[in-house]
Design a protein around this nucleic acid. Structure first.
Lengths: 210, 210
DNA sequence: TCTCCTTTGTAACTCTTGTTACTGCAAAGC
DNA sequence: GCTTTGCAGTAACAAGAGTTACAAAGGAGA
């Protein structure tokens, strides 16, 4: 754990705090595609992302999903954080986008560290700030953008988060993330291909110029 | 200021903190309709809402608006808070929905109190939690609801926040808040009236059963 | 009362998105 | 090889929302 912690958070936290994290945190490995948190779950510890990527989803009563944003190394889930502090249930679903390693911190430590370490407070506030920004971006996309623009945004983000210009997914999966239908996605992807912005193959989309 | 502060926050903060707020905060009165914060503004102090209500809006590059949520007594704007901490510009616009009184806190105090007072930390985290929830609600509305449902939601919230079952506004203003056109709003309002959920008059909408 | 301006009602049309249905293709397993 | 299954392409249509245009009603002020 020492090495991963140093790499992801070494420049952020003072040594004393890093030592405390190492002492009370536990490493957890999540393979790609596996669920990390489900809507309605009680949150008993807080995750620090050291490797991989996570996607955060919202769901409505009919089971329809919507991708909110991705988390990367050095991030923590402010929603979870928020639930920890308030002792409420999770309002979101988290799924490993890639193979992912987390350090799980017991809630009890959080309050303690918030009082004790300035760097921890900054980290927590910075997380909230980032997540609020990402929520705003999600709202902008929904409110102000058409489906084709939203799809381009999705493809850009997906390529970026996976550090791979080839997106390995199906039209149906993209449709779920964006809360629309497969036919719509196929239609728009085809349009993007004609515009030479992407190239399409079975189970993969190559980003050329978005 | 003493009385207002006690009424709105007396049960939340310890006496010592209340005294500090009274000492370093300044009262500010904003008449209904007036702008409080503009997108891009640097945020130099943090507002505590003691009376009235505020609406928080998002805007895109074309100047199109969208109402995010309302704030009430006892609330603070987590977006602003977030900007304060990060020393970044405001990402939202805030407008007084009713005549409103605020206590403005200098940023410098915030970091100090966060370390010093548990009740302040709780308040700040609670604020973030509430605002994240409201953002999620906004996202749900945009992603999962049709215009007619969104309109009903809007009318319910507006009546609640103003503590008045008669909404004093025009179709055009509602259209701006919801980022749609006046004609669409008129059409849907008429439908709601036929369903006996509201009654319509010039410049006002009476909520009957939403 | 008359006039002007704002607000609201409505029709007709367009555009985007969602739905249904069917086809062809590719990969995996037999 | 053949069959099965999942994925992608496409047409045709439906529904929701946005746009344009115009008429009518309400209210304020002259």
């Amino acid at each position: 754990m020492h090495k991963e912690l140093q790499e992801a958070y070494g420049f952020l936290f003072e040594d004393e705090l890093l030592a405390e994290i190492e002492e009370s945190g536990t490493m957890k490995f999540i393979p790609a595609g596996e669920k990390i948190i489900e809507i309605g779950d009680y949150v008993t510890s807080m995750p620090l992302l050291v490797k991989g990527a996570i996607k955060i989803l919202r769901e409505d009563n009919d089971g329809d999903e919507l991708l909110l944003y991705f988390l990367e190394r050095g991030d923590t889930c402010a929603m979870t954080l928020s639930c920890c502090m308030g002792q409420t249930r999770s309002e979101i679903r988290a799924i490993a986008e890639r193979d992912t390693s987390l350090i799980m911190i017991p809630i009890s430590k959080m309050e303690e560290w918030t009082a004790k370490y300035k760097s921890w407070r900054n980290f927590v506030f910075e997380s909230y700030h980032s997540r609020l920004s990402e929520m705003l971006d999600a709202i902008d996309a929904l409110a102000f953008m058409n489906m084709d623009e939203r799809l381009m945004r999705y493809l850009r983000e997906k390529a970026k988060i996976n550090k791979d210009e080839v997106i390995h997914s199906t039209h149906q999966k993209i449709a779920y993330d964006m809360h629309t239908s497969r036919v719509v996605i196929s239609r728009l992807l085809k349009k993007l291909e004609i515009e030479k912005k992407i190239s399409l193959q079975r189970n993969q989309i190559k980003v050329i110029d978005l």
